[in-house]
């Protein structure tokens, strides 16, 4: 199957996602990422995760690539739990659900930790969804379609390009060091420190040399830096992406769903932790139904 390289991996060339205009995908990320900040009810935030997984599957992304996010997701959970329990202080006013190594685990704090964690996870999933399905070019098209100044889009393009370049340089330097017997596996911190110095200096030195070459190449093709002051230029890339009625409808649906969430949250007092099924279940489990 032919694949397209995205920022985080690959998505099949025939992914149905490419029928959607890149601006809509950026808009989706920006708007839907707001939802977990507005929603406290864990089951609704879990629904956003399910939606993200569905969209990943719909886009034909290889879900095994998501394995790399398991450690980050777990470490976030651990960090939140640590902050809300062991490092959370002594609170006689809270209900002690159980004790572990002498530390009291308060019901109120566990509920808060679950609330925060179930808000963090969908945000991570949405970011992963966007980065696994968007090519660098999609981001540029979205920005240019939204009339972001050319110099900004060009800086972003070059920055993304240089990330790839530095990763390549980084692995070349690393291989060269390994070939000379420099292996950090199981070595001391001082050894690793020396190794890192051997990476970072060549990376900077290469960047300095490249800065001249890139600048020459850009100047030689007639680009003049005019700051944010725009010089009218054609945008050939945009001609290859049509913003269709369907894209307009999607933008409207996403916008309306944000309005809907705002109304339910602040107008009707819904989507809160207090009214959530998860809270009822936690209460039953951690408090044994005690009020």
């Amino acid at each position: 199957m032919k694949m397209n390289k995205t920022i985080l991996g690959y998505v099949p060339e025939e992914s149905p996602l490419y029928r959607i205009h890149p601006f809509v995908r950026v808009f989706f990320l920006l708007v839907v990422s707001l939802f977990p900040m507005l929603i406290n009810a864990p089951e609704w935030n879990l629904a956003i995760i399910v939606l993200a997984i569905f969209l990943l599957k719909y886009s034909r992304v290889n879900l095994s690539t998501l394995k790399i996010y398991v450690p980050v997701s777990l470490s976030m959970g651990f960090l939140i739990l640590l902050s809300h329990t062991v490092l959370g202080g002594i609170h006689p006013e809270f209900y002690v659900s159980f004790k572990l190594f002498g530390f009291p685990f308060y019901y109120e704090r566990i509920v808060a930790a679950v609330d925060v964690y179930t808000r963090v996870l969908p945000m991570i999933f949405l970011t992963v969804l966007f980065l696994s399905t968007s090519r660098e070019r999609d981001m540029l098209v979205a920005m240019r379609w939204a009339h972001v100044p050319f110099v900004v889009t060009y800086l972003v393009a070059m920055a993304l390009r240089s990330v790839g370049m530095v990763i390549e340089d980084f692995s070349i330097v690393r291989q060269a060091e390994k070939a000379r017997g420099f292996d950090p596996q199981g070595k001391s911190i001082a050894y690793k420190l020396r190794q890192f110095v051997m990476y970072i200096i060549p990376l900077f030195a290469l960047a300095l040399r490249r800065s001249d070459e890139f600048a020459n190449a850009i100047v030689a093709r007639g680009y003049s830096f005019t700051g944010l002051r725009e010089v009218k230029r054609p945008d050939y890339i945009l001609t290859q992406y049509r913003f269709r009625v369907r894209d307009g409808l999607l933008v409207a649906i996403i916008s309306l769903s944000l309005v809907g969430v705002l109304i339910i949250r602040f107008g009707l007092g819904g989507l809160t932790l207090e009214g959530s099924l998860t809270l009822q279940w936690l209460e039953l489990w951690l408090k044994g139904g005690a009020a």
Binding site: R137, A157, L160, R161, F214, A217, G222
Partner: peptide, 16 residues
């Protein structure tokens, strides 16, 4: 050292 674009097409049209 002169490529600054994401695709060959973008690279070729940059000057134009």
């Amino acid at each position: 050292a002169q490529f600054t674009a994401m695709t060959v097409e973008d690279e070729v049209i940059f000057g134009m």
